[in-house]
Design a protein around this nucleic acid. Sequence first.
DNA 1: AAACTATATGCGTATATGATCATATAAGGC
DNA 2: GCCTTATATGATCATATACGCATATAGTTT
Lengths: 104, 104
Amino acid sequence: MSPDALALVARRFAVLAEPMRLRLLHALFAGEKSVNELVALTGGTQANVSRHLQTLAQAHLLARRKQGLQVFYAIADPSIFQLCELVCGSMEKQLSREAGVFAR
Amino acid sequence: MSPDALALVARRFAVLAEPMRLRLLHALFAGEKSVNELVALTGGTQANVSRHLQTLAQAHLLARRKQGLQVFYAIADPSIFQLCELVCGSMEKQLSREAGVFAR
DNA sequence: AAACTATATGCGTATATGATCATATAAGGC
DNA sequence: GCCTTATATGATCATATACGCATATAGTTT
């Protein structure tokens, strides 16, 4: 495994390592949304949401589509879905005997 | 998705977002190894390797086994293998037309 | 017990990155 | 052209964390 490849994989994980970005991805699971919609759905500030969307787009996880005044973002890398399933599944197992954070 | 759950998933990704930790996981793909072996394999300092191993163990990704003077670490969460396959596969697609970082 | 080996940890520093505020850019309506 | 709306970005601050050095702990050998 070359150092370059390692750095790229690490970067990919780092992009996924922020709660607000996970919130945004989760909100986009249902389909394409505008920045304003995402601001409303996540409860973040406009500036912060915009920045995180840019981070996700630069990582090629989101696609950006401009239409008039609005910018629409959508999930561009379907492997995200499997990734989340995998991680959530693994963590449910780990926490199965502890408090039911994932339960409800 | 509760904020608690999001924070936990984000934490899981953060643990995987460091090149040295990925190096250690990669080295452990072949099976259990002592800290000294991992120091030799990764080229890191003993202190740094020890710290990263602790981080991975606290995240329940590695199991720790003490035997005499040595401590052996091994992959405890098999979902790691699928995770890496998934991410690497996704990135190969993304980079397929660019420089062959993953090629060789 | 003293010396040695393997591993872990406290501390200081450098760097990265997230949040906020204010402002800039871009596009549409008047 | 001017005003409004939607989004992006520059500057700053606060926080997190990786690394290196030195040292502590645990276990072995003699």
